[in-house]
Design a protein around this nucleic acid. Structure first.
Lengths: 224, 224
DNA sequence: CCGCCGGTGTTCCCGGTGTCAACATCGGGC
DNA sequence: GCCCGATGTTGACACCGGGAACACCGGCGG
């Protein structure tokens, strides 16, 4: 936007990020990313990149941004497909779906996922818990999760007293699942078994929240 | 054991691992570990290490082993301190304590924790979900968790039907918490708030499991 | 119209790393 | 007593991130 279409290469910055996304996908993680390699791919000498990024980390952060966007888009698509007449069921299904989506993204776009999360510890200190700007809105996984949880409260499945901070409980669960699936004990599981494990964990959350309003008592009905 | 006390340096392998543990602690992760640096610390020329380890990754795996041992020891110590007359409460407290212990270890021994988990994706394929040898026993975090969950079933808090695979639900939760704390949105929280978040997530599990046997119904009593 | 200037890209350089190959050294088994 | 194999050393190569100085070129003021 700012300095697009420069004379020499024509928007190198964007090209580097794009190549970076691709490289990170191939390498399945940030480790394999080399600034020099990116420069080569784009057909430019190394060190050219340093006109647009202070250092490798800054480039990685930009790639992480793209990763976050992709993750958000994946979640939105999956959420849009959730449909059920009963609002309670609908809210519960939505929460499960966003969890599934998170883990699925981690598996199908591993490299980008790893970068997106690894770039978190970037800026020095005194960072708010969540980027806070548009994060609370819809444009981020956190925002989507927030919305889902609010719907769960509205539907009467999650007790309002249990609502504050629930994002982090859910986030921790799905992120942990993603990790176990990516590099933990669940990595060599076949698709069906893995899906079953993920659903079991998500069902645990579902039951827990249902219990806060007494709806997951003796006759708890699991989601299909 | 096998070739201890060799002539030149005298058990270099062990010395390298020890130095590696220290280095990884300082660097707060596996990235900062350099074989050459280790060799320097031990007072030996670089490349000497390659007589004992095929490559850097093999050395990291060994360090990861030490990390796992430390994690196990930390968990055992904390579990031993759990004491309550009521067996049900005792089992619930134990599960919470092992979860707290996991996250605490991640925070206090970050580097070792990262290495311990990152080394998981090592050996090629067809790996069982869990190292399986002694893992099912007591000598690993997984084994400790297993034991805790069994006790929870015995105490009548967790329904036997919900028992299989519960290790992974719990593991995912605590590992996710550790990640959010280490490099996620919970990293800049003060101790009290962080502890509260961890406990909230663990309480969600506790309530979920209590609901499987109807003991976390209308009158769910949270742990102190 | 020209000349300068700043953004962009290039070249050269340095220190650092993992890893391979050839060589040196020493101790224990024949 | 001597030789072989385990251990350690030296030297090299390819790669990387990053700094410094230089080359290019298009737009802006004179």
């Amino acid at each position: 936007m700012s300095t697009a279409r420069a004379y020499h290469h024509g928007n190198l910055r964007a090209a580097l990020v794009e190549a970076g996304v691709e490289a990170v996908r191939e390498a399945r993680g940030p480790e394999g990313l080399a600034v020099r390699d990116l420069a080569r791919r784009v057909g430019v000498s190394h060190n050219a990149a340093y006109r647009h990024f202070a250092d490798r980390d800054e480039l990685l952060e930009e790639i992480a941004g793209a990763g976050m966007a992709a993750l958000t888009a994946a979640g939105a698509a999956r959420l849009a497909a959730v449909d059920d007449a009963d609002p309670e069921r609908r809210a519960r299904l939505a929460l499960r779906e966003i969890g599934r989506s998170y883990v699925d993204f981690a598996r199908t776009d591993t490299g980008l996922f790893r970068v997106a999360f690894a770039a978190y510890p970037s800026s020095a200190a005194a960072q708010p818990m969540v980027p806070d700007d548009e994060a609370a809105a819809e444009g981020s996984p956190f925002g989507q999760l927030s919305t889902c949880l609010d719907a769960l409260v509205d539907a009467g499945w999650l007790h309002p007293e249990a609502r504050p901070g629930a994002e982090f409980t859910c986030w921790a669960m799905v992120h942990g699942l993603a990790m176990l699936v990516l590099e933990g004990p669940l990595q060599h599981l076949d698709d069906a078994s893995r899906q079953a494990m993920v659903d079991q964990a998500l069902a645990a959350i579902d039951r827990s929240y249902g219990a806060t309003t007494g709806r997951a008592g003796d006759a708890y009905v699991p989601l299909g």
